[in-house]
Amino acid sequence: MTTTVVAGNPKPGSRTLDAATRLATSLSGEQPDHVIDVVELGAGLLGWGDPAVKNAVDTVSSSNLVIFASPTFKATYTGILKLFLDQFATGEGLRDVTAVPLMLGAGPAHAMAPDLLLKPVLVELGATCPVAGLYLIDSTYTEDSRIADYAQRWAPVLHATTRTEAS
């Protein structure tokens, strides 16, 4: 199973990236195969045909399981993640990809944001999102058991719905 992390935080090497990597590791039992820190794609996100962006899109499209992560920004996911998601074709761009929406925030007020805001976009792009998204408090996710609890509950479902090369 090929696992990829996509972190849409305007800060490189962010807590969002760390949380998504921890979640991918908990779900798969090993480090993710690919990590895309979207901010590193820079101005190439603003147009079409940038080779680094195309490579990142191809990596995500060919992955089995992708964690799409964003901090909560103005009550939704970030614009930089939106710019990256705009690179995928509607209905087909994430076909055969099992996706997990993950968002971090300062408090519980936006706890439904992964399911209400990010998941519909992923589904519109063709992803399968068979389980609830995950919302983490950015100041406590390294100390609490939310990632481990989520993985214990949902990893079997995600593995069962993930396309493999043998299928």
Rank of each mutant, 00 (worst) to 15 (best):
S63I: 08
L81Y: 10
L46V: 03
P108R: 14
P120W: 06
P114V: 05
K74D: 12
R22Q: 14
V131M: 12
Q87R: 14
L134R: 05
A109I: 10
E40Y: 02
V57I: 10
H34E: 09
V57C: 00
R95P: 00
G126A: 05
G133E: 09
L94Y: 07
V35H: 07
Q87M: 11
D96E: 15
K54I: 06
L102C: 11
A99D: 12
F68I: 07
T78Y: 09
I80K: 05
V35I: 14
T59D: 01
I67K: 01
L65A: 08
G47L: 05
V121W: 01
M103F: 12
S61Y: 02
L104I: 09
L116W: 07
L94A: 08
L85K: 08
V100M: 11
A56L: 07
L81E: 05
V131K: 04
A56P: 00
G29K: 10
V60F: 00
I80V: 15
M112H: 11
A75E: 13
V35F: 04
G126K: 03
G107V: 05
P51N: 07
T98D: 03
A127R: 02
G107W: 09
L46N: 13
A56I: 03
D50C: 01
S61N: 08
E40S: 15
R95C: 06
L122H: 02
L27Y: 12
T98L: 04
A89H: 14
G133C: 10
S28P: 06
V97S: 04
F84W: 09
D50R: 05
V131G: 02
E124P: 00
A52I: 06
G93H: 05
T59V: 12
T72I: 15
L125G: 00
A132V: 05
G44T: 11
P71T: 14
A52K: 15
P101H: 08
L125K: 03
L94D: 02
S28M: 01
V121R: 01
A56Y: 01
S26P: 00
L46A: 12
D115Y: 04
S28I: 03
V57M: 01
C129D: 06
A132N: 13
L45R: 08
L117S: 13
S63R: 06
G44K: 13
G93D: 12
D58T: 10
G44S: 13
V53S: 00
L41F: 09
A113N: 07
A56C: 10
A52T: 14
D37F: 08
P114G: 13
P108Q: 15
L85N: 04
T59H: 03
N55A: 14
F84A: 01
S26Q: 15
S62P: 01
R22E: 08
P114A: 11
D37L: 09
L116C: 07
D37N: 09
Y77E: 02
K74V: 12
S28C: 05
C129Y: 02
D96K: 15
S28H: 05
Q87G: 10
A99Q: 13
N64I: 01
G93N: 10
G126D: 04
V66S: 09
A111W: 09
E40N: 14
K82A: 13
C129P: 02
A132D: 14
Q31I: 03
K119M: 06
G47Y: 04
E124D: 10
L81V: 11
G126W: 02
L23K: 05
W48Y: 14
A99M: 13
A113T: 07
T78V: 07
A24P: 03
G47I: 04
T76Q: 15
K82Y: 11
A106V: 15
N55K: 14
D50H: 07
